[in-house]
Design a protein around this nucleic acid. Structure first.
Length: 568
RNA sequence: GGGGACGUAGCUCAGUGGAUUAGAGCGUCUCCCUGCGAAGGAGAAGGCCGUUGGUUCGAAUCCAAUCGUCCCCUCCA
């Protein structure tokens, strides 16, 4: 991109200054370029001279003057003008056709515009959501899903080979799961006309009945007269309920636009010996010991607060033991890195997981845990405490997606930094449906589609190839601002991915939409500024411009998992 | 007590160590539709960026301390 080209040109100048001794440089600094907000400061600016001034012991403006003196300016060079401003900034004004280059590049790259290759050759498994199989995906789980799914897309766009994975916690302790199965059993009996039964630990949500209905549809009345306290029946219903619940979770997530490559079963790690193998491996490496009848991991040797039990005194493995086997398995499957998306309530588990990975002989830095802060559900002005057992949870699908739509819901989760606690006022979300900022962005897209349609209908003009349009006619300030904004997509994607910050890309989408709306609305004040204007050559140039904008908007919306509607 | 996250406009929040002017949405106040769909645009008001120090030519941003809010510190998963 242009930014890299400019950085290289400036680096070349610095190299010359270093070789001929004009600047006493030991190493070449990184040249950071940015687009100034004000056009008075040129197209691009760098503060590299300010950073060098100190080490060189020279006034920053003198350093800047030296660099500027060595830059190729005018003629064939990309740089038309270089000014020194303020304390020592170098402001660059580029050759007038640099903006047209951006449009040509977008046209050539199409759906690939914005992608980069920093992650080429590296593979990542990103594990997210991973809700227990005794309840549906909640509204809170939606935040996890939105963040994980978008991060996976962002990493893919930066060249990584990415696999989306869901860890099924199907080795849940039997008391919880048996209770769940039992709850389903009684709902099943109710569906067959028998009287229900209530007890304290019963699961009460609507979804319990949904699972029961699935069992009925699948196996009919086979269990009508079964005795739930018989171990055989308990086991059967535990399995049936689990499978039904997981199927429901899968449906919920698909409605949210999230599709996993792998649904990984925790219990499979136990049943085929991988958990035992992981424990043996850690023991072989000398990082376990026995105390009080249990087997402990020497987690403190790897920076954890305390040692952790791997095998209980009763001989059963702990959750951590399974987790170690799971992470070992990820690396053994060939993934270079693992990313886990966890809620803030699991922050304390990071150090023990990394300790376990290190004890197994892997570099713990291959795991990155993306923590997001909690979601508070606010209803009638108060934070709702939810409980799966009591059945007062808010479900992602029923309470959010079906109320405000998939796009609005995803946008809402993604627009905030994962580090900020997120309050969702469920009443407000419903009421302000039309105010959701996602429509602002989508409307920009729809407006373009309509303008292109209008050009076809009224002027019999299709979007031409950039090569067939005179792009130098795009001289309006609003046009230049729009093109510059389009050129920022690759950087925005790279930054959002590198910083695990999907909200950056959301911000970009909103900025781009704002710049476009401003450009477009100028046409409402003056017909000559319309896309569909009277001058045929200007019309062609503007069609290239809005078509490029459409490409960039579509690429951005796609990465965020949002639809790009032609009309709204 | 230890670890983590966060304190930015009335509210909800963005903000990569740089330039007279710290941004957006909502809310408040003005303007702009016989239209390229106003789900939009132009503008106004509203900020000692929690506080105090430090580093720097330069700090909302980096460092330290401090105050406040939230989360976590099971042989639960």
């Amino acid at each position: 991109m242009i930014k890299e080209q400019l950085a290289e040109v400036i680096s070349d100048a610095l190299k010359i200054a270093k070789t001929n001794g004009t600047l006493a440089l030991e190493t070449l600094p990184e040249v950071v370029l940015e687009m100034p907000k004000s056009r008075a400061h040129g197209d691009w600016a760098t503060g590299v001279a300010l950073g060098l001034a100190r080490t060189l012991g020279m006034p920053p403006r003198d350093v800047a003057a030296t660099i500027v003196g060595l830059l190729p300016i005018g003629g064939d060079s990309l740089i038309a003008k270089a000014d020194i401003a303020g304390p020592g900034f170098i402001n660059l004004t580029l050759r007038s056709d640099w903006l047209a280059d951006i449009l040509r590049r977008i046209e050539a790259q199409g759906a690939a515009f914005g992608q980069s290759h920093t992650g080429a050759g590296q593979s990542i498994v990103i594990e997210f959501v991973s809700t227990n199989p005794n309840g549906p995906i909640t509204v809170a789980g939606g935040r996890n899903a939105a963040i994980g799914d978008t991060m996976a897309s962002l990493l893919t766009a930066t060249g990584y080979r990415v696999s989306r994975e869901y860890y099924i916690n199907d080795a849940l302790n039997s008391v919880q799961m048996n209770n769940f199965g039992k709850s389903v059993f009684f709902r099943y009996r109710e569906l067959l006309g028998h009287s229900g039964q209530e007890w304290d630990e019963m699961y009460r949500g609507e979804y319990v009945a949904d699972v029961a209905r699935e069992v009925l549809e699948k196996d009919g009345t086979a269990y009508e007269n079964a005795d739930i306290d018989d171990p055989q029946t308990t086991h059967i219903f535990r399995e049936l309920s689990e499978a039904g619940m997981i199927a429901q979770q899968k449906t919920d997530l698909e409605a949210f636009g999230v599709v996993f490559d792998t649904w990984f079963s925790e219990s499979s790690l136990h049943s085929d010996g991988r958990v035992k193998a992981a424990i043996d491996e850690v023991t072989r490496r000398g990082f376990t010991y026995e105390k009080d009848g249990a087997l402990w991991l020497k987690a403190t040797e790897f920076g954890d607060d305390k040692d952790r039990v791997l095998m209980r005194a009763d001989g059963t493995p702990t959750y951590i033991a399974g987790d170690l086997a799971y992470h070992k398995d990820k690396f053994d499957r060939g993934f270079d890195r693992a990313i886990n998306v966890w809620g803030a309530d699991h922050a304390g588990y990071i150090s023990r997981t990394k300790a376990g990975i290190a004890a197994l002989g892997y570099d713990p830095n291959r795991l990155y845990v993306l923590l997001y802060q909690l979601v508070n559900i606010v209803k009638d002005g108060e934070v709702v405490m939810s409980s799966k057992r009591k059945g007062n949870i808010l479900e992602l699908k029923a309470d959010l997606i079906e109320e405000i739509g998939k796009d609005a819901a995803r946008f809402f989760f993604l627009m905030r930094s994962p580090h900020s606690t997120l309050d969702i006022d469920i009443n407000l979300a419903k009421k302000t449906e039309k105010d959701n900022p996602v429509y602002y962005v989508q409307y920009a897209y729809a407006r373009i589609a309509q303008a292109i349609q209008k050009a076809r209908d009224e002027k019999n003009a299709a979007v031409p190839l950039a090569a067939d349009a005179n792009l130098s006619l795009l001289t309006e300030e609003t046009e230049a601002t729009l093109i510059k904004k389009l050129s920022e997509l690759p950087d925005e994607i790279a930054l959002s991915a590198a910083e695990y910050a999907p909200q950056r890309l959301v911000q970009y989408a909103r900025d781009l939409a704002a710049v476009f709306h401003s450009f477009y609305d100028a046409g409402n004040r003056s017909p000559a500024l319309r896309v569909v204007c009277d001058d045929p050559e200007t019309l062609k140039a503007r069609l290239v411009l809005v078509s490029a904008t459409q490409t960039v908007l579509r690429n951005t919306l796609t990465l965020l998992g949002l639809s790009a509607p032609e009309r709204m």
